[in-house]
């Protein structure tokens, strides 16, 4: 857990440095008036300081900062957990990219099939029925009833 605290603190320090530099560039004060960079500059200094405290606490011998577990803790809860997470993310990215090209109906249909079949595999009957029903119902609710303009894509619907 201590390693995770250190990695986290370093990441937030980097974020703080980026915002600090940005704030400096936008101008902290114009005369006695705070400029556009004042607030992000001050906030990022606080973030850097807090990250330093977490880093120091992580390096300090003894208890780690706010960690519930000690010692080496596995990052994922099970042996195949990382695969499920990656597959879910792949599904989400497919929807993001596919929506514009394939349109709402096809993207949703394939998206649901993918998630139901590959993350916690279901029977094909369940997969296809759920995919058809979900695609149809969401299309009717969002596109027809709520008038959300969903992309038509290949089917031109």
């Amino acid at each position: 857990m201590r390693n995770r605290d250190l990695i986290g603190a370093l990441f937030w320090t980097a974020v703080g440095v980026v915002f600090c530099a940005g704030g400096w560039e936008y101008g902290i004060f114009r005369g006695s008036i705070p400029g556009a960079g004042f607030f992000p500059f001050m906030a990022s200094l606080v973030l850097i300081a807090l990250s330093m405290i977490v880093t120091m606490t992580g390096l300090w011998p003894g208890k780690t900062n706010g960690s519930r577990g000690e010692g080496k803790e596995k990052f994922f809860s099970g042996p195949n957990s990382w695969k499920r997470i990656l597959l879910a993310l792949a599904g989400l990215l497919f929807f993001w990219q596919g929506l514009g090209y394939l349109g709402f109906l096809l993207t949703t249909f394939f998206f649901i099939i993918f998630l139901l079949r590959f993350i916690e595999p279901q029977r094909w009957v369940t997969v296809l029925t759920t995919a058809i029903l979900t695609t149809g119902i969401t299309y009717i609710v969002f596109n027809i009833l709520l008038k959300v303009r969903l992309p038509a894509g290949l089917l031109k619907l």
Binding site: W12, V15, F19, Y26, A36, A43, L47, G66
Partner: peptide, 28 residues
Amino acid sequence: SMIKSLMMAVVGLLLGCIGTDLITGMQR
């Protein structure tokens, strides 16, 4: 952890700075 929560609050403040500054009109 309170320090981590404080860090998150500051990250939230920084994310809120992204976009057009309402006072100067500058893109941040």
